[in-house]
Design a protein around this nucleic acid. Structure first.
Lengths: 92, 92, 92, 92
DNA sequence: CACTGGAAAATGCCGC
DNA sequence: GCGGCATTTTCCAGTG
C-alpha cells in the first residue's frame, strides 16, 4: 500500500469520525426540542429565539471585525493607546 | 406544438429574462464598489458596513416575526388593543 | 459633516438600493417557479433546463468571441459591433 | 422568576451549548479538508468520496435492516442485538 | 404525504 | 492560484 493511500485513508477516517460526532450532537439538539415540546413549549418559538440570539452574537462579532477593519484602514492598531471611533454609520 | 411546451417555453423565458436583469444589477453593484475604490475607499470596509446594516434589518424583521409567534402562541392577536410583552429573552 | 462621509453615504445608498432591486427580482424568479409548480411542472427540472441553457449560452458566447478573434485577425470585423445581451438566450 | 421561564432558559442553554459544540466540530472538519489540500489532495474529490461512502453505509444499514426483518420473521433474531454506530463506516 | 421553511453543503466568484 | 465570501442548491425536519 502506497503512502498516499495511507494518508488519504487517514484523512477520510478523521473526517468520518468527526461527522459521526456532529450527527450525534445534531440528534441531541433535536432531542432537547422534543423534550421542550413535551414540557408544553412551542418548539417553533424556541427555534426563533435561538436564531435571534445567534444573529445577535453574529452581529457583535461583525462589529468587532469592522472595528479592526477601520483601524487597519487607518494604519493604526497601536500597541497600548486608547481609541475612540465615532461610528457614524454603525446604526443606520 | 403542444400547449404544454408553449407554457414551459413561456416560464423559461420569464425566468431567463429575470436572471438577466438580476445579473445586470449585480454588475451595477460591483461597479459601485469599483467606483468607491477609485475614490480611495476600502471596498472591504464598505462591504462590511453593508452586511452589518443588512443584519440589523434582518434582526428587526426577526424580532417582529417572533412577536407574532408569541402572540399567536398566547392565542391573542386582538383586533385593536395595545399589547406590551415583557420580552425577557430577547436581549441575552 | 465632511465631504468624505457624504460620499460614503452616497455609495452605501446606491449599493443598498441596488441590492433591494436585486432581491425583488430574485423573489420574482422564485414566484415564477412556484407558478410553474402550480401548473404541474417540476421546478427542479426547470432549474436544470435553465442551468443547461445558461451553459450553452456561455459556450456560444465563447465561440463567438473566438470567431471575432479570427475575424478581427483577418481585418473582417466591423469597428463598432455591439454586444447585444438579449441575444444570449434567443436561440434556445 | 417563574418556573416556566427557568425551564425555558435551561432548554435554551442546553441547545446553545450543543450548537457551539456542533460548530466546533464543523470547523474541525473544514480544517481536515484544508490540511488534506495542503498535502496536495483535492478537497472536492475527498468530499465526493465521503458522500459516496455515506450512501454506501446507508444502503448497508438498509440491507441489514431488511435482513433483520427476515430473520425476525423467521424467529432467528437475538432479542437484545445492539445497534453499533461505529460499524457504519468500519468496512469501507 | 406533500409542502414549506430553514439548515447544511457545494459551487462559483472575487480580490489579493 | 488560493482563501474567503456570497450565492446557489440540496436536504430534511416539521406541519397541515
Amino acid at each position: 500500500m502506497t503512502i498516499a493511500s495511507e494518508q488519504i485513508r487517514s484523512f477520510l477516517e478523521r473526517i468520518e469520525r468527526l461527522e459521526i460526532e456532529k450527527k450525534i450532537i445534531a440528534d441531541d439538539i433535536k432531542e432537547v426540542y422534543s423534550e421542550a415540546k413535551s414540557s408544553g413549549y412551542d418548539a417553533a418559538v424556541l427555534r426563533k429565539i435561538v436564531s435571534i440570539r445567534k444573529l445577535d452574537a453574529n452581529e457583535r462579532m461583525e462589529q468587532e471585525a469592522i472595528m479592526d477593519l477601520y483601524l487597519s484602514a487607518l494604519g493604526m492598531l497601536p500597541d497600548d493607546s486608547e481609541i475612540v471611533i465615532d461610528d457614524q454609520f454603525a446604526g443606520a
